[in-house]
Design a protein around this nucleic acid. Structure first.
Lengths: 340, 340
DNA sequence: TTGAAAGCGCTAACAA
DNA sequence: TTGTTAGCGCTTTCAA
């Protein structure tokens, strides 16, 4: 059978209790003892049984990942970033795609949490913006971290990426290329992140002395198809913008498609930019100028915070040390404004 | 606190053991007793604690997902398909991306399994082809299902998608468009699925009376970059193929990029096709003709089989009823051969 | 700083 | 058909 805490205790000549303390990184263990026990643990390749631990401590060492429908690459990056930290600290990650429009959506998430007694959950945007969900989870006594683009909660409960500053970079980039008539395809206005990106972009443009009229801003739904619809609208008039920025890469891809249909050459006649740096961005022709967030880092940080919260009081807190700064990636789809 | 088996036992006037029997659908419980207990269970809204059950019965009600590096969309689809069935049957899904080239790769997977006492794992291609891994998992006493393109194991342990027949469709499609000089960018030859697709394609072409010379077949590495390298090679000679088929969409995207660089118009001067139907395929310009596998269904089926295996003998087996047939998706990137 | 003993909620032998 | 008695492997009172 597998090696248990008893084996470790016997071999290291201490009690179960002390081994338990070592496992749980309690500071009240003598340095010599700790090292001896750690060595035995290592030699025996012991790892504590999660179910037993959970049963005894009413914890599960399981973290949940709740998301609605961001793109697959984003989810994949989150999972990798989260698991990096999880596996280091003996946690496992349980996934839960959900339907935020479903009527029993919150109940469904709560059931997910209680079914496996999750120690905490990470909530991805855009579900992360759902205030009722966060409140319900909190009331259920479960820890959570919301990934977001704005402070929408206690600072402890969020990992925020400064998307506003990213859009500022984008604005500066386009203005420096000479663009003065720029169209913007926003995400749905009921998402705070959409507003954040839009406002960040618009106000940065203004700071650069470029104004964007309200009919140059169109609300999309973040889908490829809606990107097409919005870009068609932006490019339908006699005077066309020389650049279009979209709230995400999917819609930017839609804009590229429209440009293609209209035989507008990108970036010569029209610059296009997105947000996300998903797999599409580097593969599509022309490749897409876009914003890349450090998604894996954000997820790692979220897990660290989560584990910190659910750790017993006498264990040492982890240090949280990763920067969350998005980066502008310039590719082929943006270029100098040409006179027209 | 939550209601436990003891509460149920007390209220229904039987022993814990009997309640346990009812929970586990043991046939050796009197009909009257069973009904009484079930009523109490219902009234109390009791649901047994997974950790306690697991600790006592050495099961976890957790399934694992092991994968190396297929594209993110594929993973996302697998997760959704798997979770559909999992959540219906009270199981949870734990994810585990891994590095199949790492030296301790198998140990790492085994540790993943034992850490959480997984009841079973689903292994995605291409790791699923690793025979040593499957053997090790089996020996560790864990159930597994390998998603694959060929029968590489006991039929019970695999969910197979007939990729050979898909490539036959592809071949027929291209031949019907008049193509006679076709290039093929294969995946690494050490993957069985690569060979399966390649051989399926080549032999189907032959059946259609079209031969493909060996210098028209180039081994890629499934990456976008290697697609570029291989396509450049195929298109470097004085006589160019009129169509290029790649082992996956990523490499096909590379081929599109090369065509673009060479100012070859697709599909007028060159047809290109991929395999996967990933997110790229429908967004790229021109959109990509490719093969779509019913990935979600395959994952659902895998979970059903897995749970069937790990269920106690006296519970009803699930019926497994989904078809696993890939489909050819024709888009813009393939068209009639033009004389040259 | 350390240890002894009592469970956590459930299932599994073995009786009855 | 049912109940009794032990655990599963760990954490947690409480003492020392």
């Amino acid at each position: 059978m597998a090696v248990t805490i008893n084996d470790v205790a016997k071999l290291s000549g201490v009690s179960k209790r002390t081994v338990s303390r070592v496992i749980n990184r309690s500071p009240s263990v003598g340095e010599a003892t700790r090292e001896r026990v750690l060595k035995i643990i290592h030699d025996l390749n012991f790892s504590p049984d999660k179910q037993a631990r959970g049963l005894a401590s009413s914890r599960s060492y399981l973290l949940g990942l709740i998301y609605d429908n961001p793109d697959a690459l984003y989810i994949d990056q989150v999972q990798r970033g989260a698991l990096d930290v999880c596996s280091e600290l003996g946690y496992e990650l349980v996934v839960h795609p959900c339907q935020s429009k479903a009527i029993d959506f919150i109940a469904d998430c709560l059931s997910f949490i209680s079914r496996s007694k999750l120690d905490g959950v990470i909530i991805l945007p855009p579900v992360s913006e759902n205030k009722a969900l966060a409140a319900a989870i909190c009331q259920a006594g479960c820890h959570y971290i919301r990934l977001a683009s704005v402070d929408l909660d206690d600072h402890q409960n969020t990992v925020v990426c400064d998307e506003r500053s990213a859009m500022k970079e984008m604005a500066t980039h386009l203005v420096s290329l000479g663009h003065k008539d720029i169209g913007f395809i926003s995400g749905p206005h009921y998402f705070k992140s959409s507003m954040e990106r839009m406002e960040g972009f618009v106000s940065a443009l203004e700071e650069c002395g470029v104004n964007i009229s309200s009919n140059r801003i169109i609300e999309g739904r973040n889908s490829y198809e809606s990107g097409i619809v919005c870009a068609e609208q932006l490019l339908s008039g006699p005077v066309k913008p020389t650049a279009i920025v979209a709230n995400n890469d999917e819609m930017a891809a839609g804009a590229l498609r429209v440009a293609h249909n209209l035989k507008l050459s990108v970036p010569d006649q029209l610059s296009v930019a997105g947000f996300d740096d998903n797999i599409l961005a580097s593969r599509i022709i022309p490749s897409l100028t876009t914003i890349c967030r450090p998604v894996e880092n954000m997820a790692s940080l979220a897990v660290q915070k989560l584990i910190n919260m659910s750790q017993s009081d006498d264990s040492m807190p982890l240090k949280l040390t990763k920067a969350i700064t998005p980066v502008l990636i310039c590719r082929e789809s943006t270029g100098k404004r040409t006179e027209n």
